[in-house]
Amino acid sequence: MTLSNSIRGEVTVRHLSKTFTLNGQPLPILKDFNLTIRSGESLAIVGASGSGKTTLLRILAGLEEADGGDVLIDGRRVRGVGTERAVIFQEPRLLPWLTVIDNIGFGLETRGLSRDDARLVAQRYVDLVGLNGFEIAYPRQLSGGMAQRVGIARALAVQPEILLLDEPLGALDAMTKIGMQQELARIWKDEDVTTVLVTHDLEEAIFLADRILILPREKGGEPRLIDIDLPRPRDRSAPGFVRQREELLGLFGLH
């Protein structure tokens, strides 16, 4: 037991299956799916629409129930949502009636901190995501990129073992997106957290992830895991990066 106690943020998925019903027809999304996410690693999940990448993330988050199989975190079987996990959604999902700092402190307050204590902790994360000066702004006064920073800070503030990101930059414009990717890379370097990132952007996956899980489009195809052994901080124009992207595009039959 002493050994497993020291592991923090390891996710094991065993024999997971999930089937949706679409127009009365069963639509299998995941079938006997197995995966281990190492403690502290960044895993990106890519795949075509309908490949089940968001479903897998939602099951890991506890927002969706699997039909069969287990999710284990640090060796413990989990059901439903849990405080060791935090989710960053595609939309910032901020509470419009709370200021930036109180939105960031939301998760802390639901865990029993007083508003003042939550603000004290939240201020550190305001600094981390570079929103100084916007503490008492309301969400409607923020740009899309700033709002998503608040969402990221809110998730980091509860110091989760595992951070689950569901296409977090998917709704941002191209320029903001690249800036945010660099910021995420910087933040993850400093935070001791396992990250699972669902994205449809291959370049984003290569830029951020230690490993990429590719879910097959056609049923019966095998998921593939690819190691990204590129030095950090990563450079999009480096030959290794470009080669990696070509290789991945090839796997999708796109070149």
Partner: peptide
């Protein structure tokens, strides 16, 4: 749903 993920 967001509030639920924070244990509310």
């Amino acid at each position: 749903e967001m509030a639920r993920t924070y244990g509310a």
